[in-house]
Simulated scan of single mutants.
Amino acid sequence: MNVLAEWTALACEELGIDPARVDRDQILELTKEVAHGVARPAAPLTAYLLGLAQGAGTAPEEAVERLTALARNWGQTTTETLTDR
């Protein structure tokens, strides 16, 4: 078992989460997009916010898709926001 898989399994056990419900690759892809498209410190913050959203009942698949799209379009989004002021 590699370190990431072992960490995921142990962290899930510690938090009482079914590891089958964790799409590790999807989360890693999201945080990669955020780290490269927005800023590196935004990646762990985004993962935390995703967890809060899931706890509040937002469908994780939908939330991941929306956040990934936001990160991929970050340059365009911020330009539009700045020019709206």
Rank of each mutant, 00 (worst) to 15 (best):
T83L: 08
G55Q: 04
I27A: 06
V22K: 02
A53H: 07
D23K: 14
L45D: 03
T79C: 06
A35T: 03
T58Y: 07
A53I: 01
G75R: 12
V38H: 01
T83R: 14
R72T: 04
L70M: 11
A20W: 01
D23Q: 10
A53K: 02
A11N: 12
A39Q: 06
E29Y: 06
G75K: 06
A5Q: 12
T81S: 10
E65I: 12
R24M: 04
R24I: 11
M1W: 10
R21F: 14
L82C: 15
L70R: 06
A63F: 11
T81D: 01
E13S: 04
A42M: 13
W74P: 00
R85P: 05
A39S: 04
E65A: 15
R21V: 15
A71G: 02
T31D: 00
L67I: 06
L82K: 09
I27V: 15
A35F: 08
L15Q: 03
N2H: 15
L67G: 03
K32T: 13
H36A: 14
G55L: 04
L15H: 15
G55N: 09
D23V: 14
L10P: 01
A35K: 00
K32I: 10
L10E: 08
Y48I: 12
L67R: 06
T68G: 09
R72F: 08
E33K: 09
T68R: 07
T81M: 06
T78A: 04
E13A: 09
W7S: 04
V38Q: 02
D23G: 13
L15I: 12
T8A: 08
T68D: 03
E33S: 13
E29P: 05
T58K: 03
R40C: 13
L30V: 06
